[in-house]
């Protein structure tokens, strides 16, 4: 009995060690946005009649709430855009890469859909596009690149790939090596001084480089690039 107990609790300890996620920092909601939470996603609505939607997949072991500052940014207040941040099982997008399809079915009034993702979420966004390319008009990758099994080189949608220059988790080499898997017209852009964790608001990420910008500054720059790409 004791040996069996030790085995199962040892197993539990191992799982526990690798299952810590990043706690989002407290976020002050912005007046011009209404935020609705369901069990599957967080909807950010700016009160405008939305014709464009952005579905966002969070990074690995990062709670979707950490990206609220990105999608309820005052720069997005007057756009006809609705954002939907998907909550992932175990905070790992690999477990639900096709959740975007459910979101799209939930909002039939949206005419154009973009899918975005940070880090692992970006890789899974590529997988979602690979599985259902006709559902999306474009894709935004933040410190992310497609998995080896994904080939979007012939996809008709537009792609924006953003990376912080001080990101030590998603290296420039990783982006360069996977360029051939993305459409030829993909826009690659770098945020000077930005790092990996700077796309969300969840503190310092292990093994990441230093953020020379403030966290809100990196978010503002990312939002500007995102808006220019979508519109």
């Amino acid at each position: 009995m004791f040996k069996k107990g030790c085995f199962f609790v040892g197993l539990l300890l191992c799982i526990t060690h690798f299952s810590c996620s990043y706690l989002p920092e407290t976020f002050e909601p912005v007046d011009s946005f209404s935020i609705t939470e369901t069990q599957k996603y967080i909807e950010v609505d700016n009160g405008q009649k939305a014709t464009t939607g952005i579905i966002f997949y969070p990074g690995g072991l990062v709670d979707a709430h950490a990206y609220l500052p990105l999608f309820s940014n005052t720069l997005m207040a007057n756009l006809s855009v609705k954002s939907v941040l998907v909550k992932m099982p175990l905070n790992l997008a690999v477990f639900d890469a096709n959740e975007a399809q459910y979101v799209i079915e939930t909002y039939p009034e949206i005419e154009r859909w973009f899918i975005a993702g940070h880090s692992l979420g970006g890789a899974m966004a590529c997988t979602a596009v690979n599985n259902s390319p006709s559902l999306f008009n474009g894709m935004i990758l933040m410190a992310a690149y497609p998995a080896n099994s994904v080939d979007l080189s012939n996809w008709a949608g537009n792609v924006l790939s953003v990376r912080g220059s001080n990101d030590l988790l998603t290296q420039q080499k990783d982006i360069d090596d996977t360029k051939k898997q993305l459409p030829a017209n993909t826009q690659f852009t770098t945020i000077n001084g930005g790092n990996h964790a700077g796309f969300g608001q969840y503190g310092v990420q292990s093994k990441d480089g230093e953020n020379e910008l403030s966290n809100p500054s990196q978010i503002d720059i990312t939002v500007e690039k995102m808006i220019n790409f979508i519109l």
């Binding site: 107990g5 539990l12 799982i15 935020i35 609705t36 939470e37 369901t38 069990q39």
Partner: peptide
């Protein structure tokens, strides 16, 4: 399976019983 959710900051929208996770127990 989730029945009630409490949130002080945002509006909560529910659509019947929804899966709210799972796990292992010893």
């Amino acid at each position: 399976l989730n029945i009630v959710t409490n949130n002080k900051l945002y509006e909560v929208e529910k659509d019947g019983l929804t899966l709210n996770g799972g796990g292992l127990k010893f």
